[in-house]
Write a protein that binds this DNA or RNA. Sequence first.
DNA 1: CTTCAGATCCCCT
DNA 2: GGGGATCTGAAGA
Length: 185
Amino acid sequence: MDRKLETRQGKVLPIKFYSRATLSVARDLLGKVLRVRDGRTWRSGYIVEDEAYLRDDPACHSYNGLTKRNQSMFKGPGTAYIYRIHQVHCINAVTRPGEAVLIRAIEPIQHIRSSTNGPGRLCRALGITQDKHDGLSFVDSKDLQIASNGEFAKFGLGVSARVGISEAIDEPYRFYVEDNLYLSR
DNA sequence: CTTCAGATCCCCT
DNA sequence: GGGGATCTGAAGA
């Protein structure tokens, strides 16, 4: 990997970053680097769209408590929660117990070969699967990380209702980088 | 441009 | 047995 790309990788976010109010974490994840190991290098992109899911939130997978599927949501701040829906994988960053941020779109940085606008598509582009990555820690894992490199340009913060849910459909818990070219839809 | 059905299977009730 | 934090392609306005 050349030096310029090395620099662009940035520093892994500490567990402290995730141990905060989920809405704050969702806002602050915009512009951070999501990366997945691909041999000697990374597949990576800037997070440009995400959604918060809270504990007392009918749209949240943990709303009815701990189950087999959502157990990663209770493994602590900075855990990756990956679930499948309709043959597609989606990735979340866990914050407080039972709360998480769904990553919905990334702007490609490195080794991205297919579209990344949408939670299912970005997981496919990065090679993220439930089998390989569910329950890993973004803080400790050598294969799955979120980092800050300080290079993402200043941006306007967009806020809207969440996408694709049938409960709590009006809550303004979706955050995105205004005018970014890689948003979903 | 927008809406809508279908795919397809794992998880939960 | 029913539905889903999705995606795609087809049809309509």
